[in-house]
């Protein structure tokens, strides 16, 4: 799976979770750029990503991934 496909799917998940159709993700998008991305929604977001891509992040990933670029990199590594 290439980065572009990952970003397309991520964009759709983010829009769904944060109820905002204007979200356009980039590598550097962080929690401060998206209203409502806090520690509570972070975990729902992670679960939705895992379900969508059929992967499982370990806890280190969950705690350390700080922007969308890092999330996409881990997805690429885990999804192969």
């Amino acid at each position: 799976m290439n980065k572009e496909e990952i970003f397309t799917k991520l964009n759709s998940i983010f829009r769904d979770i944060f109820d905002d159709d204007t979200i356009v993700l980039s590598e550097g998008t962080t929690a401060t750029d998206i209203e409502g991305w806090d520690s509570l929604t972070h975990i729902s977001l992670i679960a939705a990503i895992e379900d969508e891509f059929g992967i499982r992040f370990d806890m280190k990933d969950v705690l350390k991934m700080k922007n969308v670029g890092e999330i996409a990199d881990r997805i690429a590594a885990l999804a192969g």
Binding site: D19, S44, L45, D51, M59
Partner: peptide, 28 residues
């Protein structure tokens, strides 16, 4: 909170709720 949310029990619950109410409500 994070380990509990990612536990097997919660994962099953989330999947069950997702089928019934959709992803966003299930997460909440």
């Amino acid at each position: 909170f994070y380990p509990l949310e990612r536990s097997r029990f919660m994962t099953h619950m989330r999947r069950f709720f997702t089928k019934a109410f959709g992803r966003k409500t299930a997460g909440k």
